[in-house]
């Protein structure tokens, strides 16, 4: 029923500009990327500070406060392997515009991130894998059950677990794509929310091909029920496709200017 939720992926420490800004606590490059993504229609911003073993807590607090103060308490997705840094980020997080999202738990080493989400009333992205790529959807569904039971056992509302089918790169794993769509369909049938790092599918493709492939994938995934994704909102073709699919799915009422809002 609700509109597709776009989580902007561009505040990521893999980017040299962002890495440098995080090292030097320089707000300008981070604010610039945040603004670009929000102007382009992002609902949430992902904040990836990497493993951040050293100084992660302080860094996450700094970024969370910086973004929320400058962008009207924009809701954020906290993305790091450092659990203490996630907790630190949540401790300064303002929930006015939405709960924080923890990115992410899986059915393996990172399952404790669900505990963290339950303890902090956060949303948790639940990646349906253990170590590496699940062989098939039977395996995915086993992980899904494990994650769901863990969260619900800790009192979480199932709607606060956003299941990630694990989008796979087409170049090399073309035969796995239909599985991924089918997994989204199964999660949706169970009434669960879904998300994922969708642009992974076009990794390694030429730059001019990627938006086309991502747009086609998001349309097919939305047809199967996908209701969120971690993507680059500055990709115009992708955003136009998401907005058009939201109209077709009746998630949003049509108006001639729908692409501008």
């Amino acid at each position: 029923m609700g509109k597709f939720i776009v989580i902007g992926e561009r505040i990521h420490c893999i980017s040299p500009a962002i890495r440098k800004a995080m090292d030097q606590k320089d707000p300008a490059p981070i604010l610039k990327r945040a603004k670009e993504q929000l102007d382009a229609g992002a609902d949430y911003l992902d904040v990836n500070i990497g493993p951040a073993e050293k100084g992660g807590e302080e860094l996450m607090k700094w970024v969370v406060t910086l973004l929320q103060e400058n962008f009207d308490n924009v809701p954020l997705c906290l993305d790091t392997a450092n659990k203490k840094a996630i907790e630190a980020g949540i401790s300064v997080y303002n929930r006015q515009k939405g709960k924080p999202i923890i990115n992410s738990a899986d059915a393996g080493d990172r399952i404790e991130n669900i505990d963290l989400a339950a303890a902090n009333d956060a949303i948790c992205i639940a990646l349906c894998s253990k170590s590496g790529v699940p062989a098939d959807n039977d395996e995915r569904m086993v992980y899904c059950q494990e994650l769901l039971e863990r969260g619900m056992g800790l009192g979480m509302d199932p709607s606060d677990l956003w299941f990630d089918p694990l989008f796979l790169v087409i170049k090399g794993m073309q035969d796995k794509q239909k599985d991924c769509l089918e997994a989204i369909h199964m999660f949706t049938e169970m009434g669960l929310n879904t998300t994922g790092g969708l642009s992974n599918i076009s990794n390694g493709m030429p730059k001019d091909i990627r938006p086309i492939m991502d747009a086609a994938m998001v349309a097919m995934a939305m047809a199967n029920g996908l209701n969120s994704a971690i993507v680059n909102p500055c990709d115009k073709r992708l955003m136009e496709t998401i907005k058009s699919c939201d109209i077709i799915k009746d998630n949003c009422l049509y108006a001639d200017s729908y692409l501008e809002i």
Binding site: L253, Y254, A255, D256, S257, E260, I261
Partner: peptide
């Protein structure tokens, strides 16, 4: 006209 109702509001706010 529900779509025009929305469109007019969008245009006025633009």
């Amino acid at each position: 006209d529900i779509n025009l109702a929305k469109q007019l509001n969008v245009l006025l706010s633009q």
